[in-house]
Design a protein around this nucleic acid. Structure first.
Lengths: 242, 242
DNA sequence: ACGGCCAAGTTGTATGATAACCATATCACA
DNA sequence: TGTGATATGGTTATCATACAACTTGGCCGT
């Protein structure tokens, strides 16, 4: 059984990587103009098609921007790299637990700030999202999507959009793992009861605008979430069957 | 003075957006095979060149993957969207402060965990990075790069790579703003002295493996960082001159 | 000196052709 | 009948060429 994963690196891939290296190494600085396609093509020994696909990818990444009739330029704000985590972490129990640890740090502060800053309307939204989870679970759903929506309403109450974005980003990788635990019908009911109680504690603290209590409740929630995830046997390396 | 920024959306852009919409809306689910280029081209009314560039971009985003001879498929793990924040936030004082707020949540926990988990070697690395900042500043540098390196060593001591990645990602957007504040030579010396004291408090707590003290020191550091940034006059909307 | 215009260069798009590759159906042979 | 090799059509990857749209800078005429 070989690691026959690395497929054909296409020519476009190679050229894109080469151009990326030129930017990374500083040979091409922000604002610089790339050589024209007519020059770059022969230089790499590829056709214009391949070259343009490579440039297209780097444009998508925000590293390059092209102006018709003028040329292709290295983006002035090149270097603002997006945060991307390999999706395979969802398959590793340990890595998911590490992400939950990050979320614990964030959600604790989020809950505390939400308690301080929430408006009455935001509190009402949080409570509504809380009840939506119940409805979802009562209807036989796993409550994952509604759970995320619940946490989103709390993050929105901080009035800091970056908390929302970061928490939602990290949630992606936990979601699948949580879905697996809740697929176990025997534990699902008991787990959802625990989650419900923990959510209620967070809401109560936010309602009373008790930042300290909200922080503790959120930290406890994440701590228990990790415990619930860890109660499942580890899967050292998955990808057992297609 | 017009907002003559929104340039020509190229055909590739439009097609990519259209395909993206099909995936987002669920019309194309993970694992599905896209219609062949020969079909999709006429459907959008574009040439194969344009279509392939659009697909190339979505491949770069991880939404599609193509297998030569077989077809183009929606990535099984499509939906794992990377976290990207518009670089223009670096120009807005308020948004930078919001990012610092997120970093306060993260760095507090990072410092606490580092205090608990650090090895002696990691402590030594942290102290070395601390001294490197001094050397940088003494040499006339603004200490921004070395400052980030310092915080990186602390994040590494948590043994949780996702703390490191997330903190470094957010640091990007604060870096430029900090550079501006430290460009003010009059305040630079005083600010760097404050920063140095705050860093020393964090190190001391990590050295003593006092998680609570480390958390507080890091939170204070971020709180003061926000104060220092806020001491500069707000720039409601920049982009005044090119 | 100045303003409009043209021409060369560059990116955007279209088209056709060929190579490499995959999946399936077909067929020959045991 | 079963099985394996093979033909075949479909698909993506790459190349080559041509034209359209646009920018830039210089040239020219006034």
């Amino acid at each position: 059984m070989f690691e026959r994963i690395s497929v054909n690196p296409t020519l476009s891939d190679q050229v894109a990587q080469a151009l990326f290296a030129r930017i990374e190494s500083g040979r091409l600085k922000p604002g610089d103009k790339l050589p024209s396609e007519a020059v770059l093509g022969p230089e790499f020994g590829v056709s214009r098609t391949v070259l343009r696909e490579a440039i297209s990818r780097l444009k998508q990444e925000g590293l390059l921007e092209s102006r018709q009739g003028s040329g292709v330029f290295v983006s002035v704000q090149a270097g603002m790299k997006p945060l991307k985590i390999d999706a395979s972490v969802s398959d590793s129990r340990d890595e998911v637990l590490q992400i939950v640890e990050v979320r614990r740090a964030l959600d604790s502060e989020v809950a505390a700030l939400a308690a301080q800053r929430r408006s009455d309307a935001q509190l009402a939204e949080i409570e509504r999202a809380f009840e939506t989870i119940d409805a979802d679970v009562a209807a036989g759903g796993d409550g994952v999507a509604t759970d995320i929506a619940f946490h989103r309403t709390i993050a929105q109450a901080t009035s800091n959009p970056f908390f929302l974005q970061t928490v939602e980003f990290l949630s992606q990788y936990v979601m699948r793992a949580v879905r697996v635990t809740r697929a176990n019908e025997a534990l699902r009911v008991e787990f959802m009861r625990q989650v419900r109680d923990e959510h209620r504690a967070i809401i109560e603290a936010i309602r009373k605008q008790d930042a300290m209590a909200a922080r503790n409740a959120a930290a406890t929630h994440m701590f228990n979430a990790a415990r619930r995830l860890a109660s499942f046997p580890p899967e050292p390396n998955s990808h057992t069957n297609p």
